[in-house]
Nucleic acid binder design. Structure first.
Lengths: 228, 228
DNA sequence: GCAAAAGTGTTTCATTTACACCCATGT
DNA sequence: ACATGGGTGTAAATGAAACACTTTTGC
């Protein structure tokens, strides 16, 4: 074992921020303004302050960028290859976040850097090992949605069943049967029919539903397991 | 966002080393000889050297302790609460490892510290936040075994179906039906019947089986999904 | 009235669960 | 001969998958 001495390292967090819009899963990237790799696209990130936790640092990065709060966020993996960053050794703890783009677009005041949503099906080259970080988060998300109702974090408060189905189809990368999907999701008793419907659409208006987190907590306590 | 400056942190890895023996899931703990908390039980761990990756550091800690190599190991989570360690800020990246205790007991030359297997059902108090680190790894393991054939990493090369079933029962924390278990596991075509059987047991001798990793790779390529 | 998406049940098939007795070995 | 764990199949219930037509709305 090493002596009890400490080593100097830089510690950063990088955030993979997922959104869902126009039928596409997207992530928020910033265009770097500083060297190294100025002008290239990168995951939003920053150094961890000496007196903040990792979770706090990740939240801070996200809030500074989007002005959003109460975002679903989870640590994914820590990247510590010696030469992953060209100017010295930097350890990066990655987080992924799920945001409702509809909220974001209203409030965004991205102070620092140019932040743009990119569809995951068409991503630019990323700096350093950010592509790998992204892939790891994406895989994590794909596994997560199968057994936890996190998909709702990506949709507006009120959504149609078709929107929900599209979301799952995009994340899981496969088509789902409409009737089976509705049967299953409604049978779980997790989403509630609202009194509102779409307006001004050139077809039969779809009913809006909303997720019921209280009900979910209760079901969990009773041993319920979400399974898509 | 912070300026591009770096911050000084200590970075360590802590290993949750699982073993299975006498029908019990166990973890390997060391008795600390240094302050702080000398004499208390702790997860094996150590500082990350400036020129080694995180994975390398974790492997090194494990090999120094057990002299084992080619161990199944996986990063779980990074703990970064500001005051988790009393003498200063230390970030800890946790890993879990699965070892075959039967191998270990032959080769062990634990050089540094007293290392003892403790059944998870009866653990001593642990230093710092090691209890939380352990719990997180245990939960991770519980989820992992359901969908990945990692249980075999905890058993000897050759094992009986009853041993395998006991292992799963202990990890999952519930009883399994003998006939259904055998039907399912044999139906996957992942384990091979050897020509050997138990000897000297006071009942009908059980057949030994072994896991076939080549076969598993092949099945994976064909889209097979392990599911217990 | 036509284009476009919403909404709705039944049948078939696959998977999971429940369950009980005979077999081989050592003492 | 008895105690101990090894080994085996079938039937019922549950869950998953396949599948087509009617409804509502805007143009």
């Amino acid at each position: 074992m090493s002596s009890s001495g400490s080593y100097i390292n830089s510690l950063s967090v990088d955030c993979v921020i997922f959104g869902f819009d126009a039928g596409d899963l997207k992530i928020l990237l910033i265009k770097r303004k500083e060297e190294p790799s100025a002008g290239m696209w990168a995951l939003p990130g920053g150094f961890v302050d000496p007196l903040e936790s990792l979770d706090h640092a990740a939240m801070r990065v996200l809030e500074e960028l989007t002005t959003l709060q109460n975002i679903y966020m989870e640590q994914v993996h820590t990247f510590g290859e010696v030469h992953r960053y060209p100017l010295g050794r930097v350890i990066s703890v990655s987080y992924y976040a799920l945001v409702k783009i509809s909220d974001y677009e209203v409030k965004a005041t991205s102070k620092i850097e140019e932040a743009v949503w990119h569809p995951i099906s068409d991503l630019p080259a990323l700096v350093f090992d950010h592509r790998i970080i992204l892939e790891k988060s994406l895989n994590h998300l794909k596994e997560k949605v199968k057994f936890h109702p996190v998909g709702f974090e990506l949709l507006p408060e009120k959504f149609t069943l078709t929107e929900l189905q599209n979301l799952y189809e995009v994340i899981l990368g496969k088509e789902l049967d409409k009737r089976n999907f509705r049967k299953k999701i409604l049978g779980m008793d997790l989403i509630i029919k609202t009194s509102e419907s779409q307006k001004g659409v050139a077809h039969r208006a779809a009913r809006f539903f909303r997720f019921d987190p209280e009900r979910y907590k209760l079901l969990i306590e009773q041993g319920f397991n979400f399974k898509l």
